[in-house]
């Protein structure tokens, strides 16, 4: 009986959620950088939810994403909002389910290359203009970045494993809206090629 209770206790302990513990902000940012330092590419299935605060309704979209360093990001959203999007550094191209095309050129400072060059080196001082919170639960970090000022984004929350598997991305806006992207079936370092990033 004692053995049984002991075993039961072990089982319960193993399934109980691990208490998240706070991590110093700088350590959280550096953990984020280190986690993705060895990720050259990844694919994942995604669920994107947009919660509109005023309208009390959530839009849910499903799809896939692919990413390859330093500057390629592909996202395909399935029905009922079908579209494919390719971000190549700072150029966004999109094709909708009806075949319509969009092309948007972002400012160079918003390009993927520039962003990755910024995080190539260890983060030793807190970047200016943002407040950061971080915690760790087992091997899972959650880093919350809160840009200061009047910008559109109030809060960016990234949940990731220390081995570079991203779990969730939340973008909270000043108007109370939230966009949540949950990643599933993440596969990394699978040698994605240029043909994996074609819109056609």
């Amino acid at each position: 009986m004692i053995r049984f209770l002991f075993a039961l206790t072990i089982v319960f302990l193993s399934v109980l959620p691990v208490q998240a513990r706070p991590v110093p902000p700088l350590d959280g940012l550096e953990a984020l950088r280190k986690a993705f330092a060895d990720v050259s590419d990844f694919t994942a299935e995604i669920v994107q939810e947009k919660r509109l605060s005023l309208m009390k309704r959530t839009m849910t979209m499903n799809g896939t994403v692919r990413f390859r360093k330093p500057d390629l990001f592909f996202m395909e959203i399935l029905s009922p909002y079908p579209s494919r999007l390719l971000l190549r550094d700072n150029v966004v191209e999109q094709i909708t389910g009806t075949g319509d095309r969009n092309r948007i050129v972002l400012p160079p400072e918003q390009g993927l290359k520039r962003w990755f060059s910024k995080i190539a080196e260890p983060i030793t001082v807190m970047p200016e203009g943002m407040k950061v919170l971080a915690d760790k639960s087992g091997a899972v970090y959650t880093v919350t970045i809160m840009p200061q000022g009047k910008g559109q984004v109030r809060e960016l929350v990234i949940t990731f494993q220390e081995d570079g598997v991203i779990k969730r991305l939340v973008i909270a806006e000043q108007n109370g809206d939230r966009a949540v992207m949950t990643f599933r079936k993440v596969r990394k370092n699978i040698r994605l090629t240029e043909k994996d990033f074609r819109l056609e």
């Binding site: 994107q48 939810e49 947009k50 509109l52 005023l54 309208m55 839009m59 996202m75 959203i77 579209s83 999007l85 966004v92 999109q94 559109q152 984004v153 973008i171 806006e173 108007n175 809206d177 966009a179 949540v180 992207m181």
Partner: peptide
């Protein structure tokens, strides 16, 4: 009327 136009990443482009 109230319309919200969203970006592919779910953020609000325009209302």
């Amino acid at each position: 009327v109230h319309l919200v136009v969203l970006s592919p990443f779910g953020t609000t482009i325009m209302e």
